[in-house]
């Protein structure tokens, strides 16, 4: 049985001029990239366009990629950076929009607001499965990113550190804080379940 080439072989093939190898890499990671974007931004709008943008950025830089990290760590770094750019872009857009005061704000320096609807309110408006995703959106982007990479992608602390270019200690601390914030945000939801 023929074994499919691993990431290293595909990247090397691409670097030798084989564009088909890049298409294979897209197929292999498109779902993960799309879901990281979706979980980070909290809505399906533009997920496909942004996923495409991630691969465009990857295509442009892959010739210079030297395997100082795994390919997927490198790709997820591009994804997280793009999401952060997108959050900033949307925040600027909101600043100049009348909706600014009525929408949820997702800024890096902002703690989860006390004015946002509680998980119990959210339960009335949306299905149960939306509650966790909704709470996720209230985390600060750096906390949100580590939690998504850990919970959705199952990356180890070491891999997350490599992906985000931060220390393992910082990863540990951010994941802990993110989970604690999530527990606080979902307090009522958890109480209802028990």
């Amino acid at each position: 049985m023929k074994q499919s080439p691993d990431d290293f072989q595909l990247v090397r093939a691409f670097q030798s001029g084989d564009e088909k190898a890049f298409e294979e890499l897209i197929k292999r990671y498109q779902r993960q990239v799309a879901n990281i974007i979706y979980l980070t931004l909290g809505n399906r709008h533009a997920v496909e366009d942004l996923t495409q943008e991630v691969f465009i950025r990857a295509f442009r830089s892959l010739l210079r990629f030297e395997f100082d990290a795994s390919f997927y760590s490198w790709l997820y770094r591009i994804t997280v950076n793009l999401c952060i750019d997108e959050i900033r872009r949307r925040r600027i857009k909101r600043t100049f929009s009348l909706e600014f005061f009525s929408e949820e704000r997702m800024s890096e320096g902002e703690k989860p607001s006390k004015k946002i609807p509680t998980p119990a309110d959210a339960l009335l408006e949306s299905e149960k499965k939306d509650i966790v995703a909704s709470a996720l959106q209230k985390l600060r982007p750096p906390h949100r990113s580590v939690l998504i990479l850990r919970e959705y992608e199952d990356l180890t602390y070491e891999e997350i550190a490599q992906t985000l270019r931060i220390s393992v200690q910082a990863v540990k601390s951010r994941i802990f804080r993110a989970r604690e914030e999530m527990r606080t945000l979902l307090k009522e939801y958890f109480q209802e379940r028990t």
């Binding site: 897209i26 399906r44 997920v47 496909e48 966790v132 959705y152 989970r179």
Partner: peptide
């Protein structure tokens, strides 16, 4: 929380995505 996040990650792109992206 982990289960909720995993459950929520249900985006599937179309089969032609890779060819379109390229």
């Amino acid at each position: 929380i982990r289960a909720g996040i995993k459950e929520r990650a249900d985006v599937e792109l179309s089969g032609s995505f890779s060819a379109n992206a390229l």
